[in-house]
Nucleic acid binder design. Structure first.
Length: 591
RNA sequence: CUGCCCGUAGCUCAAUCGGAUAGAGCACCAGCCUUCUAAGCUGGGGGUUACAGGUUCGAUCCCUGUCGGGCAGGCCA
């Protein structure tokens, strides 16, 4: 016999649209409803009268009175009032709120899904770290943000694909292959100085060890062979201190790569491929443990192999967007909002990373996504105009690409910044961070800030098992409800017919209203690409639950009231679980 | 030098495409457990939203300038 629940915001918007059509049919205004900060201002406020008054040159409060008079009658509106400069405040009858818990329990995981996206296809590309070493804490933020964003967009009615762009074709991968081989040669007893600008991390030795274990000395070459024609390799000290050492180090590194390719032939591809697969696998495992998964791993190399880069450049050339100068091929990005033109093919005939990125992004759009979202580190912001410029130059709408910039995360331990040096291999890996603070706290802390805000990641706070930690605050609310429901011992479905009109206590009504906000919270988070809004919503929801718990006893003597309250907290648990799920955080039944 | 982002309570941060008296947590002070999980709850102090102008019914939000912080400006990725 459960009574239907009507989404009050949509209902009100409907009423106001009808009123607007009567009072000012040609205004062209959209109805906006917002949640007042203060309960005394009602459940929703409408600023339509003030918007109208501007054009009509009339007193907003008079216009408000006309609008109210024109509102169709509704069972769900308890009262309306004109407030302040001309707000129309609307109070919803508690009878509507009281229908919500049964609605939520009936909907289950579907509650909170909205139609904002209308089935549009969206791709979220994130992490996309070079598979040349372990993910570090900076990647972790991009991973947590991208995964949560993708979940939120899915919940908001978009058809989402999660993609990881694998940079498996560039110089960085060559450097990893070379680094691995040099460590391997050390195992065979050959002494080639290890370049200061090669990958220093211990994982390179692990790669070398396993290749040696698998293939023995098959890939051994003498140091003399390797070093023939290679410029002197600067020492670590020289590299750090001498201004010109950096350039020399790059030159000798390139010479070493060339030597490796020449001496190893096909075997170079094996080492390259082995290192790539191992690192990519490690990265994938790391992310999987972090609750982050991808629908598609896109290989940069396939762009080269399939000739997509040439094709993309041909497309631009055809439109007169390329020219040659100094032996290189340039793209006229300055004609599309960039500060200067950019090289797409170097004098030596090699394509730049940018050329591959043009092909990649054209390919994304051709795959039919209505919208493509790139999650990038904030240090890449200067890159946006040229990529969008390339899309525009190729005849696409550049606004189909949106770039979400994620600022850096800085770790703090004992109030001190934890120093990070990528070059020296001295950085905190994502895996270490996860082991230290746990996946739940990690995921939650990463998305607790607006993405364009610098993130201070306080390790001590994230680890603390106390009230200081907002993750536990929310999880605790969930566990509390689970404990009560366990104590009761019944099944959720037995709560469907509870008499929710008994829920009249202020803390019960506050919780009901909060539950009703969940879909709006999803909508705001999806619209602004701001999953942190969900995190904040959950904190508020948990606070209301804790408030109810201390003021009202759930397992009341009176059976009808007991069932009504159980229905309410069971619905709350449902929403807590859904919300935490969107953020990749677990919802424990016991703590 | 130029461009982008940021500047909100002692600290870390919110603030629903411009809304009403700018909100939380931490820290500090005072209270609440013989009954469903005290990882909880209640109350208190704490602000010229960096600064100066502008736009309007209304500005933390939009515009201009100044100051301060971060990042970026390669035929690197």
């Amino acid at each position: 016999m459960s009574l239907a629940y009507t989404d009050p915001k949509q209902h009100l918007a409907d009423l106001f649209r009808q009123a607007l059509a009567r009072v000012a049919p040609d205004s062209g205004l959209a109805v906006e409803l917002e949640r007042p900060k203060q309960a005394a201002h009602g459940d929703w406020a409408c600023n339509l009268a003030m918007q109208l008054a501007r054009g009509l040159k009339r007193n907003p409060r008079e216009v408000a009175a006309e609008l109210i008079a024109a509102l169709p009658a509704s069972d769900w509106v308890e009262k309306t009032e004109i407030a302040g400069p001309g707000f129309i405040n609307v109070f919803i009858t508690p009878r509507l709120w009281q229908r919500l818990p049964a609605h939520i329990l009936a909907q289950g995981a579907e509650y909170g899904r909205i139609e904002l996206g209308r089935g549009k296809r969206v791709q979220v590309e994130f992490v996309s770290a070079n598979p040349t070493g372990p993910l570090h804490v900076g990647h972790g933020r991009g991973a947590a943000y991208g995964a949560s964003l993708a979940s939120v967009l899915t919940h908001a009615g978009y058809h989402v694909q999660r993609e990881y762009y694998v940079n498996d074709a560039g110089r960085q991968m060559d450097i990893l292959a070379l680094s691995t081989w040099l460590r391997y040669l050390e195992l065979t007893g050959e002494c080639v100085p290890f370049p200061p600008n090669a990958y220093q991390g211990g994982y390179v030795r692990v790669l070398a060890d396993s290749i040696y274990a698998l293939h023995g000395e098959r890939y051994k070459r003498t140091a003399a062979q390797v070093l023939t024609g290679v410029p002197a390799i600067p020492s670590a000290e020289e590299y750090a201190q001498q201004p010109d050492a950096k350039g020399r180090a790059e030159a000798s590194l390139d010479a070493l790569i060339a030597a490796a390719k020449r001496l190893l032939g096909q075997d170079y591809d094996y080492i390259h491929g082995y290192a790539l697969e191992e690192q990519l696998g490690d990265c994938r495992n790391d992310l999987t443990e972090f609750g982050v998964s991808f629908d598609h791993w896109f290989s940069e190399r396939t762009l080269h192999d399939a000739g997509l880069i040439e094709r993309a450049l041909e497309q631009l050339r055809h439109k007169g967007q390329l020219y040659e100068q100094d032996g290189a091929v340039w793209f006229r990005s300055s004609a599309h909002g960039d500060e200067k033109d950019r090289v797409v093919r170097r004098e030596n005939g090699q394509y730049t990373y940018f050329a591959a990125d043009i092909a990649y992004h054209l390919n994304k759009l051709e795959r039919g996504f209505d919208r493509v979202i790139d999650v990038w580190g904030a240090d890449h912001h200067g890159y946006i105009p040229r990529v969008k410029g390339a899309l525009a130059a190729a005849g696409h709408d550049p606004d189909r690409l949106e770039v979400a910039l994620v600022q850096f995360a800085v770790l703090y331990r004992d109030g001190q910044k934890v120093s990070m040096s990528t070059r020296a291999g001295e950085y905190v890996t994502l895996r270490e961070l996860r082991q230290e603070v746990g996946n739940d706290a990690c995921r939650f802390f990463y998305v607790l800030r607006k993405s364009d805000q610098h993130l201070d990641f306080d390790l001590d706070l994230a680890k603390s098992q106390s009230a200081d930690n907002p993750v536990y605050y929310i999880q605790y609310a969930h566990a509390r409800v689970s404990s009560v429901l366990a104590g009761w011992g019944g099944m959720e479905k037995d709560l469907a017919d509870a008499d929710a009109t008994l829920l009249t206590h202020p803390s019960e009504l506050a919780l009901l209203r909060r539950l009703a906000e969940f879909p709006e919270s999803i909508g705001a988070a999806a619209r602004d690409y701001a999953p942190h809004l969900v995190a904040y919503y959950l904190k508020d929801l948990a606070a209301d639950l804790h408030g109810l718990y201390t003021t009202c006893r759930i397992l009341e003597e009176d059976e009808a009231l007991r069932l009504a309250r159980l229905q309410l907290v069971a619905a709350t648990r449902r929403v807590l679980r859904s919300g935490l799920g969107l953020l990749g955080v677990s919802a424990p039944d016991k703590m």
